[in-house]
Amino acid sequence: MSVIEPFGGFGLGLRRTHYDDFLSAPDQPRVPVDFVEVISENYMIDGGRQMRILEEVREQFPIIIHGVSMSIGSAGGLDADYLTKLKRLEERIDPLWVSDHLCWTRNSAHNSHDLLPMPLTEEGLSAVCANIDRAQDALGRAMLFENPSSYLTFPEDELSEWEFLTEMTRRTGCYLLLDVNNIYVSAANHGFSAMDYLKGLPLDRVRQIHLAGHDPATPKRDIIIDTHDRAVADGVWDLYAKAIAMLPQPVATMIERDDHIPPLPELLSELDRARGIADAALVPA
């Protein structure tokens, strides 16, 4: 499978409310990001305004296409129509890379449109790896897969999530999109050490980091929920600093916001904080 070279930089997700910001006139300063990430499914379309805007943004920035519906963990395999449309988008945009999540979203009849947790079993691993092989073959390139946040674990689990991810990358040659907020959320929800998680991963396979906000636990709810609707929490920034210091290569860092999307300057300010933390973490002691 192809090699994905490291790309160091800081970026944001392209959301509709910020289209005008990213389509600045030629005499105006460009949005200060190194790349833009888009949700694949929003652009797996035939035409119209949305596609035209993506192509115009592509002229100014490298694009990452990030999916939420590949359902790489589905026991029934991948959707051929989905792969065809994703490949068409990939050819149209020529992205830095294509990513999705370690999760499943559907069975043969219905789609939850949520990132559902994989049973961490040998059978689950085999299904995921077979699907990744098929997706990477269809796209003709290696992909990145993101560690999910989760709200339950299965009694039948045989592996830790980091062991699962490690074996997944070894068997398929895929790379990792490390969502630091997801590690933080799942560690709190399931009682494992976030540092054990990081130490257990093949960090040389990480090419990108996601940072996002979450809804903390409450007196009535023990579970932390990954919401992407607010600023990144301090605990996640701390974990980000540790992760950056541990990685052996530069990575692309981005802030994810999918709900209650603020004006662009607020997200750029968060991105500046990421830049500062990364700079500090990489200064020799």
Binding site: A75, W104, L116, P119, E123
Partner: peptide, 10 residues
């Protein structure tokens, strides 16, 4: 099986 687990989950 994994398929049965996913069916029950969904």
């Amino acid at each position: 099986t994994l398929a049965e687990r996913q069916e029950a989950f969904l």
